[in-house]
Nucleic acid binder design. Structure first.
Length: 415
RNA sequence: GGAGAGGUGGCCGAGUGGUUGAAGGCGCACGCUUGGAAAGCGUGUAAACGGGAAACUGUUUCGAGGGUUCGAAUCCCUCUCUCUCCGCCA
């Protein structure tokens, strides 16, 4: 969410920045409605002032007049509410403004490669995809999952289920012990305003799983990422600046409808309706956002380094970034079966965009300011598993366990 | 699910129709005092939105929304959340 005063003042700059994000912002329309809205407010307040002074006199002779004013106010208020609503619906779907570091571009084609890390293994046999590696003992079982839940779900069995759990614990331990994130076990179902706070609503409602509670008028949602709950931990609060930064990590299932991605990544575990993800969130003094983003990125990278999985880091262009982000790094892990890098983490600074939506502030000398927020996967468990399985496969179809992971895998060398 | 109690400022807490944005306290900030600190004393201390270059100023806000009234923190309705007791239950 943007500061409306700032938006009003720098309308054309904003318009240009939105264009970099492929958003056509109708600034004339905004201007028009904003103006009407403010006029109505001014008119209303003038009448309210009149009414107030009449009421203070407690003079019976003025009661009728006061009543008239009340009626007039009510009329104005009604149309003011309408324009306010209209104005809000324009503003709340406007994405964040790209940071100056972000390359301008229409799509992922303009993303900037930052670095490649690790060496891609050359196999002296024909490699298998994770699906082929998993179907062997039914350890990756899509058939049963389809019976239970439909497409884009999976059942993991035996050592593969263990591997998933091992990866989660491995990552959590690193982020908690080495990088001092606070571990959180959050709810997976949240209220509508929480989804609004991080920017999933109102624009991306069709991507969310909505839940209906009996006898409740309130809408609830399954979280599409732990970013939603972790970031909103500070919603509507006023934090002392000395208590910043705050860093949270959680492993949670994530639920996504994947609407609009029919036919995309249909084979395998790349794109599921439900998957585990270890998520990192930082709440910071806004001026430290970009610095914190670098730190967060290196926390996520550490996982791949320790597991010896080759990866590359990409700085997203303005056209490829998510709604709330001002700057985003993607980490992409090497997937041998596809002979390409695939996104395994996305680390974003959101500036004060979410802080403003959530009403999360901190106390500083200049008064109360909105906090900066960052989120990043550290990492997506399903995709990490895919890349680990494929990169560490042996000719016989077994998978070697990386040294650093062994203690989480009951000291197995291979599975 | 049944019965009850309650949501007031950063926090605690008074307040049942009329200068109440809201007593009192805690906390915080500044000043005085002190060799220094503590205590003490004094002063100040909400946010959002509108207008203004600024000083400043207007309006709103006592869980949320609606209603009654010339006037609502205070009365009525709906919703929501928290707490206590009972029931059920992982």
């Amino acid at each position: 969410m943007h500061n409306i005063k700032d938006l009003r003042k720098n309308l054309e700059t904003y318009k240009k920045k939105f264009k970099d994000r492929n958003i056509d912002f109708n600034s004339n329309n905004f201007n028009k409605i904003d103006k009407i809205n403010r006029e109505l407010i001014a008119k209303k307040e003038k009448l309210e002032n009149e009414k107030k002074s009449l009421s203070k006199k407690k003079d019976k002779l003025n009661f009728d007049k006061s009543k008239d004013i009340s009626n007039e106010i009510e009329k104005i208020l009604e149309s003011q509410k309408k324009t306010q609503k209209e104005l809000n619906s324009i503003i709340e779907v406007l994405p964040n403004i790209p940071h100056q570091d972000v390359p301008v571009g229409k799509s992922e084609k303009e993303n900037k490669l930052i670095k490649k890390v690790g060496t891609i293994k050359s196999f002296n046999f024909t490699t298998k995809s994770h699906v082929e590696l998993g179907v062997k003992n039914n350890n990756i079982d899509f058939e049963t999952a389809t019976k239970l839940s439909g497409s884009r779900f999976v059942v993991l069995r035996d050592k593969f289920a263990l591997l998933e759990r091992a990866l989660i614990n491995f990552m959590l331990d690193i982020h908690v012990n080495q990088f001092k994130y606070t571990e959180i076990s959050p709810p997976l179902i949240v209220n509508e305003d929480v989804m609004y706070g991080t920017g999933q609503l109102p624009k991306f409602r069709e991507d969310q799983f909505e839940i209906k509670f009996e006898n409740s008028t309130q809408k609830k949602f399954l979280i599409p990422t732990a970013e939603v709950v972790l970031t909103n931990l500070v919603r509507k609060s006023n934090i002392d600046i000395k208590d910043l930064p705050q860093r949270f990590v959680a492993s949670t299932p994530c639920f996504r409808k994947e609407a609009g991605s029919y036919g995309k990544d249909t084979k395998g575990m790349i794109r599921q309706h439900q998957f585990y993800k270890v998520e990192l969130v930082s709440i910071v003094d806004p001026k430290n956002c970009i610095l914190e983003l670098d730190r967060m990125l290196s926390c996520a990278e550490e996982i791949l380094i320790k597991l010896e999985i080759p990866y590359q880091v990409v700085l997203l262009s303005s056209g490829d970034m998510g709604f709330s982000a001002e700057k985003t790094f993607d980490i992409e892990a090497w997937i041998p079966s596809e002979k390409k890098y695939r996104e395994i983490s996305s680390c974003s600074s959101c500036g004060t965009f979410q802080g403003r939506r959530m009403g999360a502030k901190y106390k500083s000398q200049n008064g109360n300011e909105f906090v900066g927020t960052l989120n990043g996967s550290g990492l997506a468990v399903g995709r990490l598993m895919i890349s680990l399985l494929e990169n560490n496969q042996n000719e016989d179809g077994s998978i070697s366990i990386p040294n650093n992971l062994k203690k989480y895998m009951n000291n197995l060398d291979k599975i």
